[in-house]
Lab assay of single mutants.
Amino acid sequence: MPSETPQAEVGPTGCPHRSGPHSAKGSLEKGSPEDKEAKEPLWIRPDAPSRCTWQLGRPASESPHHHTAPAKSPKILPDILKKIGDTPMVRINKIGKKFGLKCELLAKCEFFNAGGSVKDRISLRMIEDAERDGTLKPGDTIIEPTSGNTGIGLALAAAVRGYRCIIVMPEKMSSEKVDVLRALGAEIVRTPTNARFDSPESHVGVAWRLKNEIPNSHILDQYRNASNPLAHYDTTADEILQQCDGKLDMLVASVGTGGTITGIARKLKEKCPGCRIIGVDPEGSILAEPEELNQTEQTTYEVEGIGYDFIPTVLDRTVVDKWFKSNDEEAFTFARMLIAQEGLLCGGSAGSTVAVAVKAAQELQEGQRCVVILPDSVRNYMTKFLSDRWMLQKGFLKEEDLTEKKPWWWHLRVQELGLSAPLTVLPTITCGHTIEILREKGFDQAPVVDEAGVILGMVTLGNMLSSLLAGKVQPSDQVGKVIYKQFKQIRLTDTLGRLSHILEMDHFALVV
């Protein structure tokens, strides 16, 4: 994948999101292997301009796509893939009243899908469409860049269908997702969380590099694949309309690839034109409109599966009536509230959605109805927002919020430890010299600072030695090549209790 991002070429006709291997024109390309080798690009942008032909009021008969309808489940399912879809609609009884809503608040519980998330729908649909058009064949390999849930859905379907599955996901995604993927037989590649989507090191860039190296491999490409919004247009939206008897006044959905909100909203605009569509985008993402909503100094966020630093091709923002931004604290607070007060075992993005819903639905009156999409299960986040310690460490809970008995030293300040200034190293000294210094002084790690004293990161003896043994660096290389740029900081005025929580999850903390 090139470091400079080429513009994806656009073909003359058809839909841009065809499933299957992508040609340089962004659509299915038939021909000899030699032709494909000559024409197939190194990668295709996940934010390529959409060429979708959908228009409100256009006859369904003019759609270029294969459409399906929700099917009634048999008493005995032939395999677990038949437990994807037909998820329950559940009334939220307490939270709406707590925040003064007059309307009825309903939750579409997508964590009841077989793999635990709304992404099971698009995973199965992308595979079925690729099999139907002859792209996927027995023994082929599926590769997908994902925040985890699409990966789980694909790995689940691949396990049943017999495909090899490789999932490329950023490091910030939970260990629970990784464990589930491994249990399903998927191979996992992790990428830096802070890598831009168009960087060769991003999950998108690495996935395309693997595709170019592995024979008979395919990126189904949830960011561009029409099967993504079509899955929701054909099934999720129809289920909502049936469950609500066609009567709903507002739908609120958090947005990642945009397939969920695009597919549902398009069908609702056709069948229930008075329904307002509300999009939820986390602070630090750029999906919301108008652009002024996205202006923030924050560039990272903890909530998973929603928000991006690019506009995915499948996201149709014209069908969203209003956007709201959400933050991590309210997302996790509301997710825990949904679990504790409503018994809905949902993930953090569901918290984002409901946090926005109780604001947006203030305009609705008694007798009206708001539906929220709860995308995934708490299963993926047992060591994250479900953990009091994690919430404390991230600053989303305060010590006084917890009532468990603490040891005698818990409320003492870090400054009472009488710490001395640490050994520091410059980023320009060599790895070999740094190892000598650390061994001589008896230290395992040291902060790396520039000549102005600005902290650049941390270097550890173990990481340097393993990097040297693996051949990633040489003793003569500058130590700046092996620094940890993500590390926890703590102030002298913070409590030892807070430091204790940090050290339970990290090997060190830097006192500043």
Rank of each mutant, 00 (worst) to 15 (best):
V180M: 08
P6V: 03
G148F: 04
A107H: 05
K97F: 15
A265H: 06
A24E: 12
K36S: 02
D129Y: 08
D79L: 06
F99E: 09
S202N: 08
I264E: 00
E37V: 15
H65R: 01
F197K: 08
C103D: 00
R190H: 06
T235M: 09
P138F: 12
Q242S: 13
R196M: 10
E176H: 02
D245C: 14
T141C: 12
K97G: 12
I264C: 13
E131F: 02
A157C: 09
F99D: 03
P192H: 06
S217T: 09
R266F: 08
K83H: 10
F197P: 09
K25C: 15
S199K: 06
S50K: 08
E144L: 02
K247W: 08
C244Q: 05
A183Q: 11
H22F: 15
S199V: 03
F99L: 06
D120I: 05
A265D: 01
G259W: 00
S27E: 13
H218A: 02
G246K: 09
A38R: 09
G11M: 04
G246E: 05
G162P: 12
S23N: 03
P6C: 07
T53R: 04
K25Y: 07
L81Y: 04
D140I: 02
W54S: 06
G14D: 13
A48T: 14
T236Y: 00
M126V: 11
A253N: 07
L106N: 07
D79S: 11
G246D: 06
I240T: 01
P78Y: 04
D86F: 10
K267Y: 06
R209P: 01
S123D: 03
V206S: 08
P70T: 10
D86S: 10
P12T: 09
S73Q: 12
P33F: 03
N225W: 00
G263R: 00
K98L: 06
G246N: 02
T13M: 08
C52W: 03
G148T: 01
G263D: 00
D35W: 03
H203G: 01
P70G: 11
S73L: 12
E4N: 12
L105E: 00
I264K: 05
S117E: 05
Q242A: 05
N228D: 01
K172P: 01
N93S: 15
E62P: 11
S117A: 06
D238M: 10
T53W: 04
